[in-house]
Design a protein around this nucleic acid. Structure first.
Lengths: 152, 152
DNA sequence: GCGGATCGGTTTTATAATGCAACCAATATC
DNA sequence: GATATTGGTTGCATTATAAAACCGATCCGC
């Protein structure tokens, strides 16, 4: 690879996001963190990821401020990995991915996990709106580029 | 790598989505497609991606039904790559990534591209709601696992 | 409090994915 | 009709990933 091309200087926020969490495992780790997993072994068993890769991913997720490693809750000597605010704000990304996958990647009737409101039990969805509340589709959206057009 | 672990059998829709589009370049190509790019060379210049990798990614995106390659519009002999409905429905994912990146990956005042409603010029955002319209935060959400708990 | 199991990693080694450059056929351009 | 551009493909070098072995520190049974 000769060093995977960095997108961190890109002026497109999507590109920078992908630079931060777009690698193969990071979002899956975040998903499991949303699911309440906190310990190294929990992630490892859940994802079936190699331990060296997991260690590295957890390290960079912590470096980037998406997770924090807190010493230990109950006197235990191990580390726990918790989502930061920055990490928790990836929630819409997770929901968007989930919604798309539900729609296109499952056979009709094939079982899959579902996301619901814990209070009411109602299904959760997400949609794109203007700031005054009008729903919007992709073709109506317009990208305003930044003056210096290095890349969108 | 001994074959990158496939997640396509996973019962978590997010995992399947990441299996389909979670690699390094696919979502960036989709982003450019949203931006109106259609031709091989356009993607190549925009992304700075190696041509062999781009060719391969376009191929698999077409295989997976996210793009289609249409012969040529104006008599020209080249191919054009267009988003399918499946691809267009990745729009919320793009918006979610963009929104997160805007918030956490840019210095205050640093310029970046913006997404607006083409009709009204109003900024676009997205939020997670129950199907009856109540906004919801990550901590209120609950994942209902599928009976056979191979993985969430 | 001793032996074994588990946890949380690190190192080593093998292979797959990526990037780069060179090449090439088919069009477009002049 | 010569040249440049487009849309790739084919090696080759390098990096990222996976699997397995290993290791110290804790946890557990008794």
């Amino acid at each position: 690879m000769v060093a995977r091309k960095s997108l961190s200087g890109n002026y497109c926020p999507s590109a920078r996001s992908l630079d931060a969490i777009g690698d193969w495992w990071s979002l899956l780790i975040v998903r499991d963190a949303f699911d309440g997993l906190t310990r190294f072994g929990e992630f490892q068993r859940s994802l079936g990821i190699a331990k060296n890769i997991l260690a590295q991913r957890l390290r960079t997720l912590v470096e980037r401020g998406i997770l924090t490693s807190v010493p230990a809750p109950n006197g235990g000597a191990h580390q726990e990995y918790h989502l930061t605010d920055m990490g928790r704000d990836l929630f819409p990304v997770m929901v968007a991915l989930r919604q798309w996958g539900e729609r296109y990647l499952f056979e009709p009737g094939e079982p899959h996990s579902k996301l619901v409101d814990g209070d009411t039990g109602r299904p959760i969805r997400l949609d794109v709106r203007t700031d005054d509340g009008n729903a919007i589709t992709a073709d109506k959206a317009l990208i305003l580029k930044v003056p210096v057009p290095d890349e969108d």
